[in-house]
Design a protein around this nucleic acid. Sequence first.
DNA 1: AGATGACACTTGCCACTGTCAAGACATAAG
DNA 2: CTTATGTCTTGACAGTGGCAAGTGTCATCT
Lengths: 216, 216
Amino acid sequence: MAETTSSETIDSTTSAKPYHHGDLPAALRAATAQLVSEKGASGFSLREVARRAGVSHAAPAHHFGDARGLLTSLAAEGFEQLSDALDATVDAGPRDAASRLNRCGKAYVRTALRYPGHFAVIFQRDLIDQSDEACLTASLTAYGHLQNTIEVVRDELNPELDVSTAATLCWAGMQGLVTLAPKLDNVSEETNTKYHSLDDLVEAFTDMFLNGVRAR
Amino acid sequence: MAETTSSETIDSTTSAKPYHHGDLPAALRAATAQLVSEKGASGFSLREVARRAGVSHAAPAHHFGDARGLLTSLAAEGFEQLSDALDATVDAGPRDAASRLNRCGKAYVRTALRYPGHFAVIFQRDLIDQSDEACLTASLTAYGHLQNTIEVVRDELNPELDVSTAATLCWAGMQGLVTLAPKLDNVSEETNTKYHSLDDLVEAFTDMFLNGVRAR
DNA sequence: AGATGACACTTGCCACTGTCAAGACATAAG
DNA sequence: CTTATGTCTTGACAGTGGCAAGTGTCATCT
C-alpha cells in the first residue's frame, strides 16, 4: 500500500501524470527523507528541499500547505513502509510464534535503518499533524500487523495474554532500541564494553519477550 | 549531582555568584526546558529563550556557544535528573529484584513526564553534541544506576544473565514507552481499545522482563 | 585611588528561513 | 480561440542563528 515512491510514477493507468514535474509530491518526500537522514530533523528546511527537487521555494506549499504537512506526509510513508515490511514477514519463514516475532523485530529495525529520514520523524509529535487521516490509518495498519503476530504468540504460548498490552510493549521495545542505537555505539566505545549489534539486541528482546509472556 | 536548577543558586559557599544576572546559564536552561515542553524541540528558538530570560538575543551564545551547546547542556541536566531519580529508588522500598526494577521503571517514566523538555532532547543526535563530556558522563552515570539494578536481578534470578544486554533492553523498553505514550492516547481513542496508563505498561514490562530473564 | 584587565552582556549586521500574496504559465474543456 | 483550473514562480515580510564589534561591570594589582 506504499506505492507513492518516485520510481513507480510512470504507471499510465493509475497516475494521471501531473503537468510540469513528473510527480512533485513524491520527489519532495524523497528529497526530504534524504535531507533529514543527512542532517536530522532539525537540519530540515523547506527551501533546501525545494532546491534539491529543482523547484522554487514556494512550490512545496502548494502540495503540502506548510512544512508540517510535508513532514506528516513523510511520516505516513514511513508507516506504510513499516507496514509493508511487517506484512512481508508473515510468509517469509516458519509460522511458529517465535520465528514470526523474531522476523517482525528484525523487519522493524531494518526498516528503521533503511529509512532513517522517515523514522526520524514518525514519532515526533511536534513535527507532524496528529489528526492527519493518511498518517493515522497508516500507523494503525502497521500496528495491526504487529498485533496479528502477537495473537499468534497468544494462541501458541499463553491464551491469557493481553494482546494489546503485549503488542505495545513489543513496539516500544523495538522503537526504544532504534532510538538508543546511535547512543549505544558511543557508549560502547567509552566503556569498552562489547558492541551489541542491533540484530542481536532484537533477538535478545524477542527471546526475553517470549519467555516472559509464556504461561507457566 | 544535579543541583544546577535555578532554585539552588543562592548557596553562597559553592556558587560564586556571577556579575549581572544571578545565574544566567541555569535560567537559560530553565527557559529552554519550558519552551521545548510547550512547543517541542522544533519550536525552540534561541532568541525566544533569551527573551524569556530577559536578556539580549546574543547572550546565550556567550555561555553555550550556539543553540546546540544550550540543548546539550539541557540534555546533560536531563540525564542528571534521571540519574538522581534512579538512584533514589534503591532505598525507597523492598530490596528484592522485582521491586527494585519496578521502581526503576516507574522512576524513568515519571522523570520523563516531569521533565518533558529535557527528554524531548536527550536522544536527538542531531540536536546535541555527542562528544560533550558533561552530557556523556551524565548519561553513563544514569546507565550505571540501571545496570546496578540489573545486577541485582542477575544475582537473584539468573547468574547467567548478560547484564549489559539486559540493561540495554530495559532502557530501550522504558524509552520506547515514553516515546510511544503520546501516540497511544491517540490510538486508543481511534480504536476504542482500553486506555493503558503508562505506569501500567511499565509494570507489564517489568513483569515480562523478570519472567523473561529468569533461569528455567 | 586609579589603572588594568577579564568577564558578562548588548547592539548591529548578514544570510537564511517559513509563509503569504500575486503573478505567470501550461494544460484541459468549451 | 477563449476560458478555467491547477501548477508553479516571483517577490515580499517578519523571524531566526551566528558573527563582530561595542558597552558596561566587577576584581585585582600597583
